[in-house]
Amino acid sequence: MPKPVNVRVTTMDAELEFAIQPNTTGKQLFDQVVKTVGLREVWYFGLQYTDTKGFPTWLKLDKKVSAQEVRKENPLQFKFRAKFFPEDVPEELIQEITQKLFFLQVKEGILSDEVYCPPETAVLLGSYAVQAKFGDYSKDVHKSGYLTTERLLPQRVLDQHKLSREQWEERIEVWHTEHRGMLKEDAMLEYLKIAQDLEMYGINYFDIKNKKGTDLWLGVDSLGLNIYEHDDKLTPKIGFPWSEIRNISFNDKKFIIKPIDKKAPDFVFYAPRLRINKRILQLCMGNHELYMRRRKPDTIEVQQMKAQAKE
């Protein structure tokens, strides 16, 4: 009997341990995780690991885990994360566990300044996060300083606006009282509904160059590809919606977008290395698949989920 391999998978709010076989595939491990977590909307998620060169990499589901260059540790380390984002949160996210995992991941992205968020929106989002954690505000329960140990706002907002910690807490407390009567799950959904409109929400950025060698950003998201100038990740200058794209491919560092209109010329940019183009293509294919799926009738499974969620 081959020696089992110890694996640790961290989700946004749990740590799971498994012993897998050397021939266990990525999908088999992924299925064990979603079964344990009770998640059925699996199409948004993936398992991310650090490869032997130190790069974050998504686990391929159709290959054995042992055949992928996972950094050698005992146990092997994986993060269970959302890899694709819905076009519209309230429309698409069905299960509460899905909404919670997205809420925790998006909140982390905002608080760590990975996703830019303006101050007033950050305060509003912070108050929904407080409602999601504490429930209704109560003078008896929530004594002064109840937010002191909470991570409420992105560091950039704290740095840019010279308010004291107490003043920030006061502002959030005012909003917290406003949310009275809102269920924790609804507060998470409100958080996501606001966050999804932030410019950088749900966008995968890649460093690219044009033929002239100018540094630019490529953004890949649920609706297509965008090009940004290097000093402004918020404002897309050129867009390629999935509906306008006939084909995408790459050849080493060169990436080619072919338009639906065959008379229009191909669009070419350059990534720093082949591995980046592989990741771009992977994200394009996954996002495009979900884009097409949303425009078809619900599968039986999704219909069942929606019915159960309603119950």
Partner: peptide
């Protein structure tokens, strides 16, 4: 009002509509 401000950003997430030759022109001139 804060919610409206946040929602107003939704439009910023897509680039302006333009035909592909215009996209080419802008991209190569960056």
């Amino acid at each position: 009002e804060a919610k409206e401000k946040a929602r107003a950003k939704r439009a910023n997430k897509r680039a302006p509509q333009m035909d592909w030759s215009k996209k080419h022109e802008i991209f190569s001139n960056f």
